[in-house]
Structures are given as structure tokens and as C-alpha cells.
Design a protein around this nucleic acid. Sequence first.
DNA 1: GGTCGCTTGTGAACATGTGCACAAGCCCGT
DNA 2: ACGGGCTTGTGCACATGTTCACAAGCGACC
Lengths: 224, 224
Amino acid sequence: MSRSPRRIPDATVARLPVYHRGLQELLRSRRTTVSSDELAELAGLNAAKVRKDLSYLGTYGTRGVGYDVETLVRRIALELGLTENWPVVIIGIGNLGRALASYGGFSARGFRIAAVLDADPRKTGEPVGDLKIRPTAELRSIVQQEGVAIGIIATPGNAAQRVAGEMVSAGIRSILNFSPAVLVVPDDVAVRSVDLAVELQVLSYYQHHRDDSPVVSMIGTGAR
Amino acid sequence: MSRSPRRIPDATVARLPVYHRGLQELLRSRRTTVSSDELAELAGLNAAKVRKDLSYLGTYGTRGVGYDVETLVRRIALELGLTENWPVVIIGIGNLGRALASYGGFSARGFRIAAVLDADPRKTGEPVGDLKIRPTAELRSIVQQEGVAIGIIATPGNAAQRVAGEMVSAGIRSILNFSPAVLVVPDDVAVRSVDLAVELQVLSYYQHHRDDSPVVSMIGTGAR
DNA sequence: GGTCGCTTGTGAACATGTGCACAAGCCCGT
DNA sequence: ACGGGCTTGTGCACATGTTCACAAGCGACC
């Protein structure tokens, strides 16, 4: 259904959510039209990249005018699959898991938290926002009942691989991993990992080598 | 002092922390030597990439044998500047800020949290781990006294730009931004942004287009 | 209806990153 | 001392990503 004519490059896919975020802001401020230059400013990129990225979605701009904000935000949401309101589960309810569970941004941008789970039986029943912590043994039935497609791992590193295996066997095929571990999963499972310490260490490198080369970077989005 | 002979490519810099993490594991299990193949497995990459990456650090391997774990972990730590035990500050102590503040991984990997700050005066004095929340007005003096070089922003999006400005004017030149906002800073300030919703949305794309192309990716590390 | 100013969409040059494949070099056993 | 097995380091071809620069096209105004 929402197949795009050409395949979209990974680098562009990583930036689409940033455009989506900026366009939503514009919507809120009642802007109807936006140029590639303005959108570039909002996304922290340059105009050429914006135009090339958007061109992979098809021809949605008007020369001499710009892009219609509402059309474009809808087109990007469609492409990213945000219209499906994916149910997600979070496993590992420590400080980070709790923070993720109560992070308002998720529900506002195409996702809803179907359940929060933890392997520690002492935590079972503990409230987290509107939800109660459930034991990991219930994962399979939750996934099946709610049609969960995306799982978030917020456990310590040593539990992550086990949890990933449980997710995969429960039918989850997209995993967002916040633990400092490299996950081994079947080829048809997508994994994205965010390691907080890694991010700091990259910054540390550029801080350390400041005189050699000043650099500003944004993860996966190739910002200036 | 620790200048490397050639400039290290960004893609490699983003992977060095992952090697460092894997090597530390090996150290703990008393391994003295590791091949590019084994290290690749640990980092979720392929051996060719590992060898090329490490070659930018100089010639530290032994043909027919592999790399000396201890030498290599030290060399990478030196390159990343992890030996300096950077003091960092966290601004914005909501759920996420609290999670970051109590995240053990930081102290274990080259950073120490010098202070946690929040703009809300009602939170001042509240304990977070060993620290107490301080008002943002104290940022400048903290930065000067402790020599803080790296700041972490964990505020809501609408406060992020203001906080970033305060950090820059206080003398911070490396910022790790967890808010969903694009920060505008002077050229000589490095920014890395992690937007949790963006990560989910990227996963959502690949989930949505699953039939077109199975994909596994790891942020900024180019894993298979 | 024609012209002018503005902005898109994109071909082509350039830059960066990846993977292959193999020579160079080290260790060990004989 | 020498040969065999193994692993590094890297040149080179290929793939992906970025930027430039400009023709094409739209809208507005005369």
C-alpha cells in the first residue's frame, strides 16, 4: 500500500523523523507552507539534503512556493508507519525503564506502551504510570493479544541477550536496545542500540582532540 | 600529546567505544590476546572493519597472533580521552535525568557526575544518588570550579535551547542532548543528540516496510 | 499573456565508508 | 634454519552519502 517508488536510503530514513518533528511544530503554529530552507533550519541540516530526502517520497513540493505542511507531515507519517500506533513493550523497569515508560513523547508520536515487564518478581504489580509491572513470563501472551511488534530493552547488559531471545521467540521483530550489549538475533529481526556511555565517549573524543578538528554531529542524521 | 598520525574517520570514532567495551569484558575474563575476528564478533561487526579501524590508531597487532588486550584497551582509552575522568553535569532532573544520574555505566567508563541541576526551585536540595539537586543559576560556578567540559541536557524540548545557551556561556563545549529539540550553538561547540522517539520511529519504518528489505542497524556504528 | 523572482527537483562531481583479497610478517614445531 | 599455518595491515574496487549548481516550473504582478 504505502510503497514508495524508489527505495529510501538509510541515511534519509534516519532523518525523516526529524522532519516530522519539525513539521508538527509548524502545524501547531498554523504555518501552511514551508520551504526547504526553513525546514533545513528546523532540522539542523542544509536545504539541499532536505530537498533530496523529500524527493524520495515523491513530488510533494511546489516550485516557487515550498511544501504544504499538512500534506508533508501526513506523507512522512505514512512512510514511517506512524499511523499504525504501534504497541510496544518495555522490559527492564529500573530507572531508565521507568523514564522511558513515562516519557510523554512516545504516545504523542505514534506509539503506545502496551506493557512494562521485569524479571524481578518483587517488582510485579508495582505501578508505573497507568500500568503495573508484569513478570517476563507473560511476554508471549501480551505480544499475541496486543499484537506487539516492537520491544524496548532497558535491562542491565548481562540480562539483555536473554531478554532479546525471549522477545524474538515471542514474535517481536524490532528491538530498541538501551543496554550496553551487542545483541545476536536472527537476520529478520531489526535491532537499534543506544548506549548512553558510548555517546559520551564519542563526545569525549572530540573534546579531547578539539584543536585538531572542531566537529558538531548528530547521531544518525548527519547534521552539520 | 596523544595525537594520532592520521586523522581518524568519524565512522571509526563512533565504533571505538564499542571496541573499548568489548575489550574491557575480555580483560575481566583474563583474556590476554584477541583476533580481529573475535573482536568483530564482540562488537557485532566484521573483521575487516575492525582491522581497518584499529589501523588508524597505529600498528598494535601482531600478525599470526592478534592484538594484546591490555595494550589495545589502553590505547583506545587514550585516544578517546577516557583517562581524564571528565566531570559532567546533568541539567533537567525529571525521570530521564534521574535515570542518567544513577546510571552506573558512566562512572565505570571515564566520567563522573559533578552536579545535577534543575530550573525548578522546588526541586533544589532533593537528593539524587549521592548528589543534591542544585539550581541552574549555579551552573557557571560549578563549571569553573570543577572544570566541567561536558553537559547533558535532559529537559523537555521547550527548555533545551535556553539550557544549551546557558551551558555554552558557562564555558561548556560538548553537549549531549536527550531532548527532542535541535540545538543552535556556536561552531566550536560539539552537540550529539539522542531522541528516543526518533529511534522508535526509525524502527517503525523498517517494521512497516519489512517485506521490501530486512535490515538490522546499530546507531552510528554501522553494524551489520 | 509575458516577464520576473523564487523554490523545487535532480544530474553530476565529490567525499566518505565498506568489503575483498592478498602480500607481509610472526610464531611454532621440526 | 626453514616451512607451514595463521592473522594483520592495506591497496583497490565498490557502495553509500553529500553538496553543488542549474534547468524546470510555479505564482504574482504588471
